[in-house]
Design a binder for these strands. Sequence first.
DNA 1: TTCCGACAGTGGGGTCGCAAT
DNA 2: ATTGCGACCCCACTATCGGAA
Length: 520
Amino acid sequence: MLLIDLARTSAAVAADSARLAKIRHLAELLGRVGPDEAEIAIAYLSGELPQRQIGVGWRSLSDLPEPRQIATATLGQVDALLERIKAQTGTGSQAARRELLGQLFGAVTRQEQSFLHRLLTGELRQGALDGVMIEAIARAADVPSAEVRRALTLRGSLPAVGAAALRGGVAELKAFHLEVGRAVAPMLAQSAASVTAALEKAGAPAAVEWKLDGVRVQAHRSGDDVAVFTRTLDDITGQVPELVEAVLGLPGTDLVLDGEVLALRPDGRPEPFQVTSGRVASRTGVASLRETVPLTVFFFDALRVGGADLLDLPDQERHAALETAVPAGLITPRLVTADAEEAEAFFGDAVRRGHEGVVVKSLGTPYAAGRRGAGWIKVKPRHTLDLVVLAAEWGSGRRRGWLSNLHLGAYDPETGGFVMLGKTFKGLTDELLTWQTEQFLRIAESPADGPADGPAGNPGDGHVVTLTPTLVVEIAFDGVQRSSRYPGGMALRFARVLRYRPDKRPEEADTVATVRAIML
DNA sequence: TTCCGACAGTGGGGTCGCAAT
DNA sequence: ATTGCGACCCCACTATCGGAA
């Protein structure tokens, strides 16, 4: 199959807003693809690469050669070139990689270049990723989509699952099972504003567990072999020796456990997320790092214990199995209750101890891997501040033509100026985007003209509009982190817009001192 | 007919490892 | 030694479609 076939299908998918139409386009193409190119087609059309990462981003994709007029590149050829590009990573040869990229882009037409560019930067933007592709595979292979979904959960790779479905239908899909050593798509949580609201959604009684601010881990043990995976199924076994040892210390030898790893201070309180994140990401000097920044693991779910797969069991039974396999000290603190007051108190205690909040879990739900089912609902405390809009950036995609991303500042009474604390684009409705764009253009200092029309993904120049600091906006956020990027040495974590405060003048906004007090 | 679950898009801060400067 | 880039850790929120109620 030719790459142009995929580029055309992708364009058709993008052009139709109806999901059923997108599914039809994708299924039609999957019906035509040969067995040896099915995985490539599924990967590309769901926005992934079979190689996963190849060390190419938006920067490497500048200065590309002129396109050809005639489309001849096959999926196999493109895949082979990407494989060679990946092979260049870590060899110190950026030049060789650029040469190969030039070869690739020089061999395809303009439409294919555009498709490849978006694919390689992870911005396919055709309104279809895994969720739509699952339905398309189901339709093309004439199997129930639930079977595709189940297989994806257990295998973690949609191209592999899709190719199997197209090849062997339901029979081949049913052959996928939980394999120790192969990561399962982790179950995700929805969120709620309060524990009481979460309890209502989950149905009482429910389990309430501490939400720890660390890195999600899935630990597999088969005999004396242990492997540890992250949320995106990356293997981090070598970076977390404490966790490996903890799992090897368990009596069971056939285990798959779900949990969170984090750095604790000697007094037992959690380190800031930045510390945990840096430690987990470090691949060098782990032996000495574990002395200075030791990691602790807490498990909260069990997917396999003693040779039995538990995915389809209700939460309560999986947790019972977890308790038989793991000592209490390694299990995330948990309370089962129907009493909202008791649950709220548990939440308050977790937060006072420095943790992120709680996750409320419905006792009856199976391990719904890879979906944000209503089985798990997270609750976190929320801070708010009134801050001043210092600048705004022109949006992209569906936000093109709107001033979207806000630069936020706190008031500094000593200088009469404002100290930038970060940016946000979250919480804005289309109506608010329209309103603020109009307002901003009235108080714009530079440049006041339209959106920069340069090549996409070129941050930092031309698309920032500086504003006279007059508008006050109420911002919600999860916390204040240390920052080397912003002048005040602080940045907001997960900032989002709640509402504008036309009743407040900029000098009445929250001050730098207030923000610093939250950080400490 | 209305409601609501699931998805995709639109970006946020921080850290590490590597290659180029 | 410093800087830029790619990848990945954490993520919130709105609009939309289409099946459920």
